[in-house]
């Protein structure tokens, strides 16, 4: 485990209820227990040079009835290019709402929209929460939640007639 750089320690001081740990070199995961604070955290990160979002992923945890929202954030600034921050937070099934970060990082636009259609996580403040990759008449179900089952086949078959 490498030492945690200064900017991360500063974030830890400024925002409560977050856990920061380093996974391997140059990968830090920030776990935010209060999703309402995500915008403040994002602004802090942006001020310390993290200027783009690589991905926004949803993760489904059906047992705990919650959905994880994972932002991967990186920087094009010299010296920080190799750092990828994993910003994790959770929303519940009952209220899958979180603030959109496109006002801070417009590069999250595509991925937030996709996460909305796949998991039903509503990003407050996103300008176009419509279906994206799915067909226009796809309705009601969120395909990447674990409750959406797809058929799998076995590997043994009987000889056909």
């Amino acid at each position: 485990m490498s030492s945690v750089p200064d900017f991360i320690q500063e974030i830890q001081r400024k925002i409560n209820n977050i856990q920061i740990k380093a996974d391997g070199t140059n990968r830090y995961s920030i776990e935010l227990t209060e999703p309402s604070k995500i915008k403040d955290l994002a602004k802090l990160l942006q001020n310390s040079g993290f200027d783009h979002v690589i991905s926004v992923s949803g993760v489904d945890y059906p047992e705990q009835e919650k959905l994880g929202v994972v932002y991967h954030i990186s920087s094009y600034e010299e010296g920080k290019m190799n750092i990828v921050l994993t910003l994790k937070t959770y929303v519940t099934y009952k209220e899958p709402v979180i603030d959109s970060l496109i006002s801070i990082w417009p590069s999250a636009w595509t991925a937030e929209r996709e996460t909305f259609e796949d998991y039903g996580i509503i990003f407050k403040g996103h300008d176009e929460l419509r279906l994206f990759f799915l067909p226009e008449d796809f309705d009601g179900v969120y395909p990447l939640r674990k409750s959406f089952k797809i058929k799998t086949e076995g590997i043994f078959v009987d000889r056909r007639g």
Binding site: E153, I155, F156, V157, D158, R159
Partner: peptide, 25 residues
């Protein structure tokens, strides 16, 4: 041994029992 059917990524290979012996198709 069914390894081929297990590793097949496209579900193309299946095992069939022929005279008591398992063979891939």
């Amino acid at each position: 041994c069914t390894l081929c059917a297990m590793v097949c990524p496209a579900d193309a290979m299946k095992m069939v029992t022929e005279e008591g012996k398992k063979l891939p198709m």
